[in-house]
Design a protein around this nucleic acid. Sequence first.
DNA 1: CTGAAAGCGCTTACAG
DNA 2: CTGAAAGCGCTTACAG
Lengths: 346, 346
Amino acid sequence: MARVRMRDVAEHAGVSVRTVSNVVSGYPHVSPETRAKVQRSLDELGYRMDYLARGLRSGRTGFIALAVPFLAEPYFAELAQAVIRAAGRRGITVLVEATAGDSEVERRILDGGLTNVADGVLLSALTVPAADVGARTPDFPLVMLGEHSVGNQFPRVGIDNVAAARTAVEHLVEQGCRRIVALGRNGSENGRQRTEGYQQAMAAARVRRVNWLVVPVEDWTREQGYAAVRELLEGDGPLPDAVFAFNDALAVGALRALDASGVRVPEDVAVAGIDDIQEAAYTHPPLTSVAPDLDVIAERALALLEEQTGRSGAAREAGAPVAAVQEATPFRLVVRESSRWRSAGR
Amino acid sequence: MARVRMRDVAEHAGVSVRTVSNVVSGYPHVSPETRAKVQRSLDELGYRMDYLARGLRSGRTGFIALAVPFLAEPYFAELAQAVIRAAGRRGITVLVEATAGDSEVERRILDGGLTNVADGVLLSALTVPAADVGARTPDFPLVMLGEHSVGNQFPRVGIDNVAAARTAVEHLVEQGCRRIVALGRNGSENGRQRTEGYQQAMAAARVRRVNWLVVPVEDWTREQGYAAVRELLEGDGPLPDAVFAFNDALAVGALRALDASGVRVPEDVAVAGIDDIQEAAYTHPPLTSVAPDLDVIAERALALLEEQTGRSGAAREAGAPVAAVQEATPFRLVVRESSRWRSAGR
DNA sequence: CTGAAAGCGCTTACAG
DNA sequence: CTGAAAGCGCTTACAG
């Protein structure tokens, strides 16, 4: 049984392919009788659109590409799920690419590597340095997601990292913690911003400098969170009052390291993270975290993409630059047991 | 700057598009000089293949589709990551779809909904009942992944669920556990198979029937694992010796419920799961689990897909059915602290 | 409101 | 080893 094309449907219904196309695409100006007749043939023959052909001809494929560093990292998996869900509501299919945080791959994407196959690109970049991108402006719809801003020439949606970090640290300070370890500083923009938020909160609380502790970490994974905290505990300094991890994966690793060393959480050391991944509600003890609203991020990102798609090529070539909106989405602090310092056990 | 087509490259290099196509696609019979000349033009003009056009013409798109129920479930996220990695090695791009475990969506995929956009489909089905599919054979390359077999007419790759469950339970029995709760039975094929493995191990160990406990659960999530174990603990029966969860998400929920009720793991109750998700090494205590080799699953699935793609349409229409290989991939038991029953605390 | 026809950017027999 | 040309299945001005 060969594939059913529009031409077959047209013959079957006794109309031209133009009319079939009109019916399929929902073009309004088709007489009701014709529409019904065509629809019957469509159903009877089991017509299925060839999206490739449509994409080739119309220039729109109905796909968007989503590139994240690692799909197996809970935060990115949950983000991808949110994007797929939001895209589904708009009849858009998502093509997922895993960049492995490789700046070469990320640059290739910024250079338009996914362009002809996707109407737009959502990139959650991890590493590509702003300098590499220079003043280049993409000639295709692109929205950066959260993690990394790569300068400000691209539209971007995500939480305000400085504010999110500040919120977490303010909470720990309110619990009475002073000696607070910031876990996760690395070379990334995001790392800088979360460090900045930590510093703002510490300064605002007038915490003495000797209690400011920034522990660098290469990747924000459970493994490295574990390793960094193990090392910290092996040192001869006093225990910190709290660990503020730059994401929940690090916090999970930190919890495991504290547990393995017999340090009690939250009685001895409080812990808080960022992301509020699903796992956070099931750690021991349950983890306090700053929760971004992934559905809002996904919705806004798709809306910004559509705005760009809407602009005619002419308008863009005429030099009207896309306003590189930097959109901050809402977040909230989810307080769980891991941060109830000294209130639980004493 | 308009898009660079093969035609532009051909003009620039002074050859026909045929020759450009030959060079781009790596066709071997091109003279070295011509190849070099074309390559120079390719680089100079910054040519990028239009995959849509190629797909339309050649019938092969270079995409495969991967459909999983929920991308945010760790197991599926890790599986997707493995598939993307394996596909990347073959120059194949993966289109990820989330079915939400909706049998309607799964059936649509089995009916070929993703066909014209992907050269092959990898489906990790959750719910679609075998009866719905009937004796139908897909007219496109399809491989089922792990979870659900939907009869045996489709090739399938994944671990032997019966054996995996039996292995986990045998391990718990070896620790001295007798009263072992099987957590997760539901209507799925997978659920039946893991129940079967549990029963085989219990029977082989001659555990008295009164100690066989099967707790049904709708979805294999942390939430439902937590709820089911809370309920179990509120009953007036004696504590079980162990909980064998049908996947790690359930086990994570179980651990949290036991912890919340003050039951010690592994001293009072041992726990084991299946999947060995990354989270398993970071639970409290670290979780014993059966680890499938996701890289092997991904590799084998892609190989089976390629085998099917290789068959000419003619051969398939001639009625030579694709052998519906049921391929069992290796797994191993990863023993961690959660199953060291009574050895730790006494 | 509908038809006939061009063309999106490729690949691939068919010649030579 | 390379060229000229047809055609994959659609959409969309252009007519009428």
